[in-house]
């Protein structure tokens, strides 16, 4: 077992945790009344008829933000092991980490100057 044992505990916790929302939905499905009709099932839009599909094209800015996010999120995850062993690393590895952060900081400044981070 060794170092895997805690993950078995997490697995048991996941199984018990899965049970709660599924049970809640199942109980409500059995107990709740069901009287569907066409007007009740129509899409809610403050009382007016919906026009067209709602799976529409949306602002491209969302996509750009997702791209920039991906870079920095991966950076953060790379920093985790570096942070754990900062004390035991040699001075060379510490500076390597700092240079890594600086390169990505340059990326952030580039994205900023390009106006990628502007919402309006």
């Amino acid at each position: 077992m060794g170092s895997q044992t805690p993950w078995v505990y997490v697995g048991i916790f996941v199984l018990v945790g899965l049970f709660i929302p599924i049970a809640a939905i199942a109980i409500a499905t059995f107990l709740g009344p069901k009287k569907p009709n066409a007007i009740k099932q129509s899409t809610y839009e403050c009382g007016i008829e919906t026009v067209g599909d709602s799976w529409i094209q949306f602002k491209a800015q969302y996509y750009i933000f997702a791209l920039v996010f991906l870079i920095f999120d991966v950076e953060t995850v790379f920093l985790f092991p570096w942070a754990v062993s900062l004390n035991s690393l040699g001075i060379f590895a510490v500076f390597e980490g700092i240079i890594f952060i600086l390169i990505l900081l340059a990326g952030l400044i580039y994205a900023w100057k390009k106006g990628m981070l502007e919402w309006a």
Binding site: T43, Y44, E45, T50, D53, S54, W55, I56, F58, Y62, F65, A66, F69, F72, D73, T76, V77, L79, F80, A83
Partner: peptide, 28 residues
């Protein structure tokens, strides 16, 4: 399949991923 829900979901996603960076770096 509702326009309000769609906009809400998108906004929520953009907001959550943006603040996840600050969250992750605070963890560091």
């Amino acid at each position: 399949n509702n326009k309000y829900a769609m906009m809400g979901g998108l906004r929520s996603t953009a907001q959550m991923i943006s603040y996840e960076l600050a969250l992750g770096l605070s963890f560091v």
